[in-house]
Design a protein around this nucleic acid. Structure first.
Length: 129
DNA sequence: TTTAGGG
DNA sequence: CCCTAAA
C-alpha cells in the first residue's frame, strides 16, 4: 500500500526541520526567514520574492483538500491569517505552479477537491530534492 | 472585494 | 509577482 499523507508529512518534518514540529494546519514562521530580513517586505513598487516553505506548501495543500479549489479567501483565513505578506493571488499562483511542476493532469474547477496525489507528489518532490 | 486568467 | 475583467 502506498504511504499515507501522515507518513509523508512526518518524514518531511524529520528531514527538513530540526525538531520544530507542527501541530495544526497553520503557518509557522520557523527558520525559513530567508536572507531578506525584517525590512525586506517594505515598500517598493513590488513585493520581494518569498519562497514558500515546505510547511507552508503542506498547509496550503491540506487546506485546499479540506475546502476545495478556488476558496482562496477561506484558505487564507484558515491557514495564513497572520501571514500579512500572503495574498489571495499568491495562494492561487502557488497551486498552479505545484500542479504544473508535479505534472499532475487534472481539471481544477471551483469547488473540486485537490487529489491527495498532489500532496504526495509535492512532499516527495521536496523529500527527494 | 474575491475569482480567475493572462501578463 | 502583477494587472484586472467579471462576478
Amino acid at each position: 500500500m502506498k504511504p499515507n499523507v501522515a507518513e509523508l508529512i512526518d518524514k518531511i518534518e524529520k528531514l527538513c526541520n530540526d525538531g520544530h514540529q507542527i501541530e495544526s494546519v497553520s503557518v509557522l514562521n520557523s527558520s525559513t526567514q530567508e536572507q531578506e530580513g525584517p525590512s525586506s517586505h517594505t515598500i517598493g513598487q513590488h513585493r520581494t520574492r518569498r519562497p514558500f516553505s515546505v510547511d507552508e506548501v503542506e498547509a496550503l495543500v491540506r487546506t485546499i483538500e479540506l475546502l476545495g479549489v478556488g476558496r482562496w479567501r477561506e484558505v487564507n483565513l484558515r491557514t495564513f491569517s497572520d501571514a500579512d505578506h500572503m495574498t489571495l493571488g499568491d495562494l492561487k499562483d502557488k497551486l498552479n505552479t505545484l500542479v504544473h511542476t508535479t505534472r499532475i493532469p487534472h481539471e481544477r474547477r471551483r469547488g473540486e477537491l485537490i487529489p491527495q496525489e498532489l500532496l504526495d507528489r509535492v512532499l516527495i518532490a521536496h523529500t527527494l530534492g
